[in-house]
Design a protein around this nucleic acid. Structure first.
Length: 530
RNA sequence: GGGCCGCUAGCUCAGCUGGCAGAGCAACGCCCUUUUAAGGCGUGGGUCACUGGUUCGAACCCAGUGCGGCUCACCA
């Protein structure tokens, strides 16, 4: 998108993009980084980091800048704890203290535990339009690509120790080395560095297996930097210009704080532009996400209920430093309504300058919510509530819903189907019981009704047959009330009977329009039998 | 103890590169002679936490106070 003729955007992604260019100066290309540890299922909270970077990357590209978007998998971290939701707990326990890249995938699909978690996410990200360049730390470290970075840390060990001590309660000992070592014999990090030759040689002793040796940083896979030093080393190595971080990193004395100093004073690289993003919470999944069960909500769970666009919308429309919930309860309906409204706004650009200002903000959020580019034709507008009811009436058959709607353009079909799939998933798995219904099948045993109730249903069937085709919903409603009046039943008694006959419940969707959705033939067959 | 964030209508929040204080829900009124947290029209509702400062002008910027939340100080 070219925004030459548009006023300066006030969207947070654009503001950060400008900040990057301002602080880093005009560059051939800008490097934006994101990264996490695949030491467990990557959850939706981690996703906020990735999507936040993606949004800023897009903002930079929309300004005409070249951007390298890298995503670092910290898969040379130590395996510290066996997640409770994993099978083969005893087997996994034997891999504690080893790097997660060497832990087997107990689900048996991938080469390693780390890779299983990585592939899960990598397969999903393109669905929401996120396409970074992946960097695997384990591979980088194990092929000694970072040898010089590690050496630099060793050379500056006193400086680094002082930097870290500034924010520590207990000082690091004088014989501390800024590296950690995975024993070449048993792979565990239960090692103590015993010496360094002022060059590439590091000596260590393993407390688990007793192994003692001196390794060459240029040849060994064993040595890595601890997090607070690893981070700034990689900023310098990749030339990172922008990287946000969670609030746990962004305190004074937190890792971003010390990494900033290390980056500048040891690696000669100005720390990236950054911001802090807040955590996100989950609403409406009952006890399912309690951390004690080890079950987490991840991107795939969100995509079950939210389309890729609406998923992006939740993040693009919320400032990063604001906490928000991803809901699986009735709020889902509201989120869709909000998105649809934003979408209609986008396709209805106002004339007056004042209205235009408000429009700009919504329009920008809409653009950033798209997986690729903004569609040429406005997607089919249908309230999610109505869509859910149609799906329930037609037992989840999207084709019949589209037939019923009648005016869906060919280019609108794909998105409508995706939305319908999400709506259907939501109804099946998360909608409150009151919301759910299914139309009775033909030939189901008749409901036990009183004589007058039976007459009423029969009479309704007659009215349907006689008037439905030729009446509007509003006109037909008088016939509905006639039925009750003619048989002297209170309408408040009559309606539940109709619902029972149709869906076996006392309540349901607004009756008049519901009857029209069901259609004459089906109604006659369901009601005429009484 | 340090840092960060929040405090705007009854509720949830938007508005924050300063320019007439907003939305949804709730409430109230009228309409559709009744319906999933239904629909339509309309109305009321505010010391923008507090104190001071900058400014022609502050919810917004600055300094401070109070209350609430998160986070760091072990590892990542």
């Amino acid at each position: 998108m070219s925004n030459e003729n548009r006023p300066k955007s006030s969207h947070w992604a654009d503001i950060n993009a400008e900040k990057i260019v301002r602080e880093k100066g005009k560059k051939e290309h800008y490097t934006c980084a994101s990264g996490i540890t695949p030491s467990g299922t990557v959850h939706i909270g981690n996703f906020r980091e990735i999507i936040s970077v993606d949004l800023v990357v897009r903002a930079l590209r929309d300004k005409g800048e070249n951007v390298r978007f890298i995503y670092s998998w910290d898969d040379y971290d130590v395996f510290r704890k066996v997640p409770k939701n994993m099978p083969k707990q005893e087997l996994l326990e034997t891999y504690l203290r080893k790097p997660i890249t060497l832990v087997p995938d107990v689900l048996g699909k991938c080469e390693s535990y780390a890779q299983a978690n990585e592939k899960n996410l990598e397969a999903l990200l393109p669905i929401v339009g996120v396409k970074p360049e992946y960097i695997y730390q384990a591979s980088k470290y194990r092929t000694s690509e970072y040898a010089d970075g590690i050496k630099k840390a060793l050379v500056n060990r006193d400086l680094i120790r002082a930097q870290l001590n500034e924010s520590r309660t207990t000082d690091l000992p004088a014989d501390w080395y800024p590296v950690s070592v995975f024993c070449a014999q048993c792979d565990k990090d239960t090692t103590t560095v015993t010496g360094w030759d002022e060059n590439y040689g590091v000596s260590y002793k393993c407390e688990s297996c007793g192994n003692e040796e001196t390794v060459d940083l240029r040849k060994t896979p064993a040595v890595k930097l601890p997090w607070r030093i690893d981070w700034p080393m990689r900023w310098a190595y990749e030339g990172v210009d922008f990287e946000p971080a969670g609030k746990d990193h962004h305190s004074e004395g937190g890792s971003f704080d010390t990494a900033r100093k290390t980056s500048l004073e040891v690696y000669g690289h100005e720390a990236p532009v950054t911001f802090q993003y807040d955590f996100i919470s989950i609403k409406g999944r009952g006890g399912k996400i309690s951390s004690s069960t080890g079950e987490v909500v991840s991107l795939i769970d969100v995509l079950e209920v939210y389309t890729p666009e609406v998923t992006r919308y939740m993040f693009a429309g919320t400032r990063p430093n604001t906490e928000f919930s991803i809901s699986f309860d009735l709020d889902v309906l509201k989120i869709y309504e909000d998105y649809d409204k934003c979408e209609r706004t986008y396709f209805d650009k106002p004339e007056s300058p004042k209205a235009l200002k408000k429009w700009e903000k919504q329009a920008r959020i809409y653009e950033l919510s798209q997986v690729e580019s903004v569609p040429e034709v406005m997607p089919y507008q249908i309230q999610i509530r109505l869509l859910s009811n149609l799906l329930q009436t037609f037992s989840g058959d999207v084709e019949r819903v589209i037939d019923f709607l009648g005016d869906v353009k060919p280019e609108q079909i794909d998105k409508l189907k995706a939305k319908a799939q999400c709506a259907w998933n939501w109804v099946k798995n998360f909608a409150p019981e009151d919301f759910k219904f299914s139309l009775k099948a033909d030939g189901v045993a008749l409901l036990a009704v009183s004589e007058v109730e039976g007459k009423a249903l029969k009479s309704l069937a007659g009215k349907v047959e006689q008037f439905m085709d030729s009446s509007t919903e509003k006109e037909f409603s008088t016939h509905l009330y006639d039925v009750a009046r003619e048989l002297e039943i209170e309408s408040s008694d009559f309606f539940p009977v109709v619902y029972k006959a149709l869906i076996g419940k006392e309540k349901g969707p607004r009756l008049i329009s519901f009857l029209y959705i069901i259609g004459k033939d089906k109604l006659v067959s369901l009601l005429g039998k009484y």
